[in-house]
Design a binder for these strands. Sequence first.
DNA 1: GTGGTCTAGACCACT
DNA 2: GTGGTCTAGACCACG
Lengths: 120, 120, 120, 120
Amino acid sequence: MNFEFDNERPIYIQIVEEMEKLIISGKFTSGEKLPSVRDLALMIKVNPNTMQKALVELENRKLIYTERTNGKYISKDGKLINKVRENYAKSIAEKFLSEMESLGLKENEIINYLKNMGEI
Amino acid sequence: MNFEFDNERPIYIQIVEEMEKLIISGKFTSGEKLPSVRDLALMIKVNPNTMQKALVELENRKLIYTERTNGKYISKDGKLINKVRENYAKSIAEKFLSEMESLGLKENEIINYLKNMGEI
Amino acid sequence: MNFEFDNERPIYIQIVEEMEKLIISGKFTSGEKLPSVRDLALMIKVNPNTMQKALVELENRKLIYTERTNGKYISKDGKLINKVRENYAKSIAEKFLSEMESLGLKENEIINYLKNMGEI
Amino acid sequence: MNFEFDNERPIYIQIVEEMEKLIISGKFTSGEKLPSVRDLALMIKVNPNTMQKALVELENRKLIYTERTNGKYISKDGKLINKVRENYAKSIAEKFLSEMESLGLKENEIINYLKNMGEI
DNA sequence: GTGGTCTAGACCACT
DNA sequence: GTGGTCTAGACCACG
């Protein structure tokens, strides 16, 4: 894993976001066992407590679960994961549209804008 | 003006962002005189220090300028404003595309997704 | 405040439970400002980080909220607080009944048992 | 046997508690021979070490005893079992009352609350 | 002065 | 070896 952090926002939040993306995009598969907290911390070069804080948050969101003394696992709840993915896509698309529209662009203009970007 | 702030990020940054959007979308016109810092602070219900901090940042970005003893004005530099608008549009579009692609969507899928949203 | 902790369970959890009780029983009033994290930590003699962890959990439960750089406050959502109180009462009553019944006692026997306790 | 464990507390403790309840409620009869440690472990799907740890604790509490090379038996000491049952009932009743009272309820209100629960 | 974050390091129970 | 908890101490942005 190769994580880059920006200094403006808490590291643990950025870890949560990155891992959430890895889960909902299928890079981590359902039920897969995660490396130990300490190993994850080493891999992305943060303090184990920081890693732990991120994992607790992911567990609050039900994207991972803990087997006591055994390890942590990606959730097996496929429906939940799908729902999170859909919510995520919807929320960033809505945010994008609203920001572009606040610049005075109409929807077809926005779509043309995106198409042109691909061609450059 | 009716501003809503999110507790997670500095208020003055959020003011900067909102005013920048107002300027580049033309809600504030070039050369227009701004209300006094004190009045702006009252209007959006923040501490005058916070308002002042936001205005300093906008001045750093050349989007407003100060006439000593006279007040603050929206920049008359139309090219600059256009450039800021274009950079802004480009940056949010790139961010949007990269986030959608990290979910595993291709560019044409993303565009279809946006089109469908509009129809709902 | 005078808190006593048992060694079997995490201190921060015990703090959460005690403060939850104080809130739902009205010892803390709605909207009331809490002492600073550091002061609370001093008062009940734990590390500020431990106190912070407890307060984060209370915030997750919506029983308190944070005003950035200003302090923490008891929730003003009276309905929520009532609901938590009712859930709490219901859950401990159900647990109590089920445990007494698993000893072979009928409901009227349980109630008599309680009445006798008071008289001793 | 059908045991469900909560991840937050040691499994062996939960086994002890469940078996204690089975004994004091008469589900296991005095003097009855228990299945082997290995079989018990299989039945409730835990590691034999964990089962063994639980049985050692039950033996410390004199609720079972071991006949060397022969097996483990439920205690024949009816007085002891009664006493444990009474202590257990008393302790959960006291805990229940104290928790309800910490919500601001008086004893007669608590009893009415219980009566109403039964009727729903 | 407020809350928040992070690091370093230690200890613990459990399997 | 696993996750979990706790302490001590430092630093930071904000208002």
